[in-house]
């Protein structure tokens, strides 16, 4: 699920950036530092959408670095148990398959794949129904439901299922081509 929230961060800025463009420098450094990171509490920071406020800087003793407390608005993505996501399959093996929904990795184990789909080993490992009308392989898109999340301080990993109504392959580039 996506959220638009306000976060705060203390930015340290090197004295060489001081000048007319101090603010721009500060913001671009903030984006470089923050975007794409993951915190267990808020999820993945997808993008910074605006700066709320920049507090007065504090010069650090000895180094000359200045610390600015910066409040910024950002979009975060946090997967939840029970959430339905669309994801791209990245890897298929006999244990199941891995998929990515943006920054988050999801594993679907083989007992959470519908019973009528069987694993086919080979050059392009895949799961196929007996009439081969549906095929799950690398690069295809699936809709899945998250049944478990593992949230560490800097990492989120999910376990999903496609064994439910309206879940499964939604667009297969190989079949379309």
């Amino acid at each position: 699920m996506f959220f638009h929230i306000v976060l705060e961060r203390n930015m340290q800025l090197h004295p060489r950036f001081f000048g007319r463009n101090l603010r721009e420098n500060l913001v671009s450094k903030l984006m470089k530092d923050v975007e794409g990171t993951c915190s267990g509490r808020h999820g993945f920071v997808v993008a910074i959408t605006g700066i709320e406020s920049i507090g007065s800087g504090l010069i650090r003793d000895g180094t000359g670095f200045v610390t600015f407390p910066v409040k910024y608005q950002c979009v975060v993505f946090r997967p939840f148990k029970g959430e339905i996501l669309e994801a791209v399959v990245t890897l298929v093996n006999k244990m199941g398959f891995f998929a990515e929904a943006g920054p988050v990795q999801i594993f679907v184990s083989n007992h959470l794949i519908p019973d009528d789909m069987e694993f086919q080993a080979g050059d392009m490992p895949n799961y196929t129904t007996s009439d081969s009308s549906v095929k799950i392989q690398k690069e295809c898109e699936v809709r899945l439901k998250i049944i478990g999340t593992r949230v560490d301080a800097t990492e989120i990993f999910c376990v999903g299922t496609i064994k439910d109504d309206f879940l499964g392959v939604i667009n297969d580039p190989a079949a379309a081509a």
């Binding site: 244990m95 594993f107 184990s109 959470l112 064994k163």
Partner: peptide, 24 residues
């Protein structure tokens, strides 16, 4: 119904247990 069950894995050698959340 195999619902809401996180698959578990075991090592045949050292009996260590893992589950699907460790997959990565």
């Amino acid at each position: 119904e195999d619902k809401n069950t996180v698959q578990e894995y075991a090592c045949p050698n050292c009996q260590r247990k893992y589950n699907a959340l460790d997959a990565l």
